[in-house]
């Protein structure tokens, strides 16, 4: 593809995204109080997890090789990841199933833009940014308490690992949502994925062997949360980040291909 075409495509989709986000923000500004309620709720949720870990660590120095501060890094990444996913794609993914069921998915297909792009990114759910704020706060705190030095290399590696993790979560979710084109009601499957994700705030090593296998190969929590956390504290060669990027890209390509098969199967409700 010539460079010029790529540039044009990027610019076009950038402009579309700008319009989408502007309209979402305008809608959300009407519910400002929600944001502060959620911020408080996120803090309280964090308090519970930290308190629980602190009590456990008062009886042991390490949890299967993880120190308290290291466990905090995991927690920080968990909050960041959860917040990013919820802000950018969560609401969109939940709507796809409903749209397919009642036939309003027609409007997504009619737009003169890539259907996966529109379906996945149209709405920005800024009220969920509370989790990102909590995540950033905790990240900064743990970085200081562990006194790791964050050079530009570490920062880039962390950002790349986070992006790869997001891509993995997105791809798994898209894959599940695509099943809607055949089965219509699958929103409950999503719940199972979230339950597994919930476990990601603790080191994977604490779980029994079978569960660990599930959390490594089926829902790769290790690459979603553990790798970014390790990248942040600099305990990681570039190899694992590279693996995460490869898995993230491969899953993305697979899920996108599956999506294309799926929309061909969509019949519409009103047609």
């Amino acid at each position: 593809m010539p460079i010029e075409t790529i540039q044009r495509t990027v610019r076009r989709y950038g402009a579309i995204l700008y319009v989408y986000y502007r309209t979402s923000l305008q809608t959300e500004m009407e519910y400002r109080a929600d944001f502060f309620g959620r911020l408080l709720a996120s803090f309280l949720d964090l308090l519970t997890t930290i308190g629980a870990l602190a009590i456990t660590f008062s009886y042991t120095d390490t949890l299967q090789g993880w120190s308290f501060s290291q466990a905090m890094v995991l927690l920080a990444v968990y909050y960041l990841m959860d917040g990013l996913i919820e802000v950018f794609i969560g609401q969109n993914m939940r709507q796809i199933a409903a749209q397919v069921r009642d036939g309003t998915f027609d409007f997504v297909l009619m737009k003169p833009a890539n259907s996966q792009f529109t379906a996945s990114l149209r709405m920005l759910n800024i009220s969920r940014a509370a989790r990102i704020i909590v995540g950033i706060g905790l990240t900064v705190h743990t970085v200081f308490s562990l006194s790791v030095e964050i050079g530009p290399v570490t920062a880039v590696r962390f950002a790349v690992a986070l992006a790869a993790g997001m891509s993995i979560v997105y791809s798994i979710w898209l894959f599940l949502v695509t099943l809607t084109f055949w089965f219509v009601r699958v929103d409950n499957i999503e719940q199972i994925v979230w339950q597994a994700f919930e476990a990601g705030r603790y080191p994977v090593e604490i779980f029994p062997r079978h569960l660990r296998g599930f959390l490594t190969y089926v829902i790769p929590i290790a690459f979603i949360i553990t790798v970014p956390a390790q990248a942040l504290v600099g305990r990681l060669g570039p190899g694992s980040v590279l693996t995460a990027v490869m898995i993230g890209s491969a899953l993305f390509a697979l899920a996108s291909a599956f999506w294309r098969v799926g929309i061909r199967n969509y019949t519409g409700a009103s047609a």
């Binding site: 390490t62 949890l63 919930e198 476990a199 090593e205 604490i206």
Partner: peptide, 17 residues
């Protein structure tokens, strides 16, 4: 989910101790 995660955490604590 909740109780099983708590159990995993405390079992890991006894193992580590």
């Amino acid at each position: 989910v909740g109780p099983l995660i708590s159990l995993a955490v405390w079992s890991a604590a006894t193992r580590s101790r």
